[in-house]
Design a protein around this nucleic acid. Structure first.
Lengths: 251, 251
DNA sequence: TTTAATGTGTACGACATCGCACACATTAAC
DNA sequence: GTTAATGTGTGCGATGTCGTACACATTAAA
């Protein structure tokens, strides 16, 4: 297998590895394309692979017994889906699925555990990433209880924008409603408010962020709290592709 | 320092250690008594100690910017507060405080990290416990969004009952309201419903669980989902004191 | 025993969201 | 260009909780 150039890798964890550790894992990574709606792990099933996200973002969903899924976190190029295997988990407690098109590097769980024995920096990064993701979930728990949909929608759009890197997202209100656990019509009202304020624009499955700062004002503190945790781990621009350099794109 | 008898230790993690590993950590544990309302870690502050809970239970709270705390998880004798240090966290993202009287074994973070280098089983147990706690938080995020207060209250009482081990709890509606992030008067209504159904009894700061099975029926699935995860880690009776043996107390 | 502090039950208008329904707008398919 | 599929805006009664207030019950303190 031809060697990848580490600096062409966008995933922040892989990009942060010392060259020697990257060389160890490189040959075991399989580039995969993720299509919209594709499921990476199913709730209750064994975790067979870990996915280091390169582009797009992944939703982590808890499935309630009435069949309703509810999103508890988002994973983009700053993280990895299925990383809980390094805590000793064998089965996934959640459903992880791609909400956009995207790409990732896949590695089998056994191979990853093997690599980790000789890659302490990778192990530490995965542990710390797992912790920050946990903080994200904890903040979401509080957010779901305390903040109204207007704030939660703005927060979600910011998180999605960070992780996708583009201002125009292909997202229906239906999809967002499922993620946030509310009616589609309720999303329509909240989105309408943001639209009237000139912050976003909706056009049949396409949502454009017009005013990033305005969106931050509309969001609850939860966005910023979690972003701060990610900055502590990855530096000033945690969601930006490592290979691009420069400040995160602003609109 | 005189050696403790490992079999007199109630904490499930410490009790599950091989004797050789327990001997390593034993001398570094400090028995502490926890009083009601005592704070073990403060949000944003460095984590200086990890607490292996022996009795009573600990609330883990996210502090929102309006000053309102919201509980995201409970820790009893099955776990440890501050365990996220083993993921590389240096500061606490949450407030942890004791909601009952209780006891714990405290160990300094540096000492714990030192022990862990030579205690792989302890390390694995802490990692797996951290994962299960994460699952608990994730379930709470979904629960806060989807389930009404009647279900959430029943779930919370079950969790508190599991971890305290006694049917009579010293808990005001005010305290429970803060934990669940609702008005005290709303708790009064939900508790009144449970009381009329003969499931619990309230007597000025003292709540008695009269019908454990009825409480389980009133709770959402979230209780059982999380309990299943804890069973996978600690066996059939995850919250029971390890030294007591026999089935968990039923009322 | 009396008094104060604490804890609980209840009331009521306001508000967000539910659950459902339907019309309309835009895009994709033919 | 016509038609079907998809996505969005809106309406409305029902429900759960908010926010606040107050009366009452129980326990603790004087």
């Amino acid at each position: 297998m031809p060697h990848r150039l580490q600096k062409s890798v966008r995933n922040r964890i892989l990009a942060a590895l010392p060259a020697a550790e990257f060389a160890l894992i490189d040959g075991k990574l399989h580039r995969v394309e993720l299509s919209l709606g594709e499921s990476l792990h199913r709730a209750g099933e064994p975790i067979e692979s870990v996915f280091f996200v390169e582009s797009g973002f992944i939703s982590v969903l808890t499935m309630l017994s009435d069949g309703a899924p509810l999103e508890i976190g988002l994973i983009g190029a700053e993280g990895a889906a299925g990383a809980s295997v390094i805590l000793g988990a064998t089965n996934s407690y959640s459903e992880t699925m791609c909400q956009t098109g995207g790409g990732a590097y896949r590695i089998g769980v056994a191979a990853l555990k093997d690599v980790i024995l000789h890659a302490p920096r990778l192990r530490d990064l995965l542990l710390r990433y797992t912790h920050v993701f946990h903080v994200q979930v904890a903040q979401t728990a509080a957010c779901n209880a305390h903040h109204d949909l207007g704030q939660r929608l703005a927060r979600w759009l910011l998180a999605a924008h960070d992780r996708s890197g583009v201002a125009q997202l292909s997202l229906t209100q239906d999809l967002i409603a499922v993620m946030l656990g509310v009616r589609r019509s309720t999303v329509s009202i909240a989105a309408g408010t943001l639209q009237k304020a000139g912050v976003i624009r909706y056009q049949h499955g396409r949502i454009t962020i017009l005013d990033r700062v305005g969106l931050e004002d509309a969001a609850c503190e939860c966005y910023e709290s979690v972003a701060t945790e990610y900055r502590a781990l990855f530096g000033e621009h945690p969601f930006e592709s490592a290979s691009e350099g420069g400040p995160a794109p602003r609109i």
